[in-house]
Amino acid sequence: MVSGNRLRNVAIVGAGGNSGRGITEYLLKTGKHIVSAITRLDSTTPLPKGVKVTKVDYNNHQSLVDGFQGQDVLVITLHQFVTPDIQSKLIKAAGDAGVPWVLPNEWSPDTANEDLSRDVSVFRSKREAAEEIAKLGKSSYIAINTGFWYEMCLANPLAFGFDFEKQSVSFYDDGETLVSMSTFAQVGRAVAALLSLPVQPEGDETRCLEHFRNRNVYVSSFTISQKDILGSVLRVTGTNTPDWTVTKVSSGERYQTGLDEMRGGNMAGFPKMMFSRVFYPDDSGNYEKIRGTSNQLLRLPKESLDEATETVIKLIKAVK
């Protein structure tokens, strides 16, 4: 049970992953939480210093229930290709263990956008997880929408279209569609800020968890276009537009191509389908415009696009 009006004990699944590690580190930095990493019995993944380790058998309901005992909140971060039944097992066990709050495996563009969730099955499955929590009625959820992860997507030519080795970029349509996205650090800051709020209001009625109960929360680092990203890349690398090969592809055609490849068993079509759909010129990727964000409420900093781009380029060079 929650002690007083604050969450103290936080369990996190995926604490060693890209987003999970950042979330864990920022939670630990607050000094307000005891963070337990929920890991498989045979896991050897390195974990952030200061985190407690709780090993469980994901295929044993009672093992999961035991692992969640005494936790105030469960934060779930899973790879996008993990089967939905894994998260369902975690949700049910959290409910049976009396965990009052669950942050499901959201961390994505706007899953509450019906058109987007209809066209991208992985977004639909995320929405279904939140609905499952609400239907069970044993825990409450807060689904955090972060958009695409900037570092991971800029480094992947199939995502934002940038190939740094070839100095080429492929724009969806005219490259001017605005899409909301976040850095790993901003995701970590957002979760730490959210879980540091009081459960019930202490003055400001919006700055509490009750305000977000069974709702989507939208946070971001930037709402930018591919042309904005290219401008940042040019500044960081000291190159000019003529140094880059710029091509254009119809977002609708690329979505269909990716979908057809997936239906044929070629999973390389998945990123083509997903990223092109979010870059449709229908504002479905621009939740800052459609929904607004909670950046100010959570007191998240305004980040430097060029600093984020520089970080990505350094990482790319480091792995060569």
Rank of each mutant, 00 (worst) to 15 (best):
L178T: 08
V249M: 10
D119V: 10
L7F: 13
K320I: 06
Y150G: 00
A193H: 09
L305H: 01
L27Y: 02
L116Y: 04
F160V: 05
N240F: 12
I91Q: 02
V122D: 03
P109K: 06
L315H: 05
I290M: 14
R299N: 08
K317H: 06
L298D: 01
L78V: 10
V73E: 01
Y141L: 08
R254I: 06
A134T: 06
E310S: 10
S221Y: 01
S250N: 11
L197K: 02
A190H: 03
G188I: 06
G264M: 11
A15M: 09
T183Q: 01
F68Q: 03
V191A: 13
G67D: 07
F184D: 00
R118H: 09
A155I: 09
Y58P: 03
P104S: 13
V2E: 08
V217M: 14
A11G: 11
R6E: 05
A268S: 14
G203E: 07
L116G: 01
T183Y: 01
W107F: 15
T39I: 15
I86G: 03
V73M: 07
S182E: 07
N216W: 15
G252H: 14
V199N: 12
K49G: 02
R124E: 11
N105W: 05
V191P: 01
D42V: 15
G252L: 14
I142T: 10
S284I: 14
N145T: 11
F123D: 00
Y150W: 15
S3L: 14
S19E: 05
S19H: 04
G22V: 07
A268Q: 13
D119Q: 11
F123Q: 02
S108D: 08
G20A: 10
I133T: 00
K314H: 05
Q200D: 08
T247D: 06
I34M: 11
S182W: 02
L90Y: 07
F162P: 00
K272P: 01
I38F: 08
V53E: 12
L136I: 13
A192Q: 04
T309C: 05
D119S: 09
Y287D: 01
S88H: 08
T183V: 11
R127F: 07
G203N: 08
F148E: 00
I91S: 02
G285F: 02
F222I: 01
V51A: 14
N156P: 07
T177A: 11
T223E: 04
